[in-house]
Design a protein around this nucleic acid. Structure first.
Lengths: 180, 180
DNA sequence: CGTTCCATGTAAGGCGTTACATGATTAC
DNA sequence: GTAATCATGTAACGCCTTACATGGAACG
């Protein structure tokens, strides 16, 4: 996962390991964050694979290794972003690809979001079923945890639907044909 | 984490590794789940430590190892539940202790929930600040991810407040003094 | 009599963290 | 001059997953 996120950030501009850490801290830290201990080895691995290439520079008297994404890296990233991303119940992983949705076509985005909605609805259905047979044997706190789960998945679904709508409007404005 | 959750489930009744897996699947799987590959070694570790004790039984012609929590195990669990649990931004870990809140006193619950609220508010504040300086340079999708974060933390805060209130009412009914 | 479910466990490996080690530059 | 920040990296370890290995019982 980390490797793809790094590639995603490098899609826009060259960054060092330190830059990546800072970028994450100020943009994705509420759903994804990584330590230096995982960022640096990940960059090394990406370089070995040829997905990125490092340039050693001195910027303002400071030594830096700037990593630039290569053609194969862009391909790796695209393939990951366009491919199926397993739905996680225990982490808001669905936010990660969304962060990079600008690299997908309107059709691909629509497909992804609709899939996300159906997956979230499936879990919501399960939780709703749990709520019924749990109402008697569960205590206030277990019930409250379940209530959180229900609200959480409703939030996910509403949020996806809103994004789907906004995206359709934006695509319409940009292309004049609603992405058809 | 897993070890404590196992202890939490064993607080009520004896369970086997298989039972634990099933119990999680039908109660905590939307915020916590574990595979057999982690459950069995965890039980072994807990047994070595003396927190649980196993009894081999034959139930309906099927071999089973039922684990019973011991006094030291109850103490271990209590200490974990009453102690500070690091706030995670990337996982809804805050739900885990709540699931076992019945083992805390009303005062402890109140303290925990208030702390959770203040931690969530701190993150919400950060995200709100991000939203302002990000509004121009972020695209629809990055902005949407941030919007999800904002709504998520609002949900966490509202949910904590509601639980805090419900808990106060329940404690009042049960003890007749609101837990004072 | 084969498939599914019950039930326990191990081995290898992935993916990440914390703590450590190093050194330059900047700010006070 | 010393503390904070910038910057890179390694080593040890934690904690979990997947895949595998095994075997009995129940269902049709």
């Amino acid at each position: 996962m980390l490797e793809y996120i790094i590639l995603g950030f490098l899609m826009d501009r060259e960054l060092s390991g330190y830059d990546l850490k800072q970028t994450m801290a100020s943009s994705t830290s509420y759903f994804f964050d990584a330590s230096f201990g995982s960022i640096y080895p990940a960059l090394k691995k990406l370089e070995t694979r040829g997905d990125v290439r490092a340039t050693e520079v001195v910027d303002g008297g400071k030594f830096k290794k700037l990593y630039a994404i290569q053609a194969t890296g862009r391909e790796t990233f695209r393939a990951w972003l366009a491919g199926p991303i397993p739905f996680s119940r225990t982490k808001p992983d669905h936010l990660i690809p969304v962060f990079f949705y600008r690299f997908l076509s309107p059709e691909e985005r629509k497909e992804r979001l609709e899939k996300l909605i159906s997956e979230a609805q499936a879990v919501l259905g399960e939780l709703a079923a749990q709520e019924e047979d749990v109402a008697c044997k569960a205590d206030l706190y277990q019930h409250s945890a379940l209530a959180f789960g229900l609200q959480y998945y409703r939030l996910v679904i509403d949020w996806c639907r809103r994004l789907l709508q906004e995206d359709a409007v934006t695509s319409y404005i940009e292309t004049g044909d609603g992405g058809q």
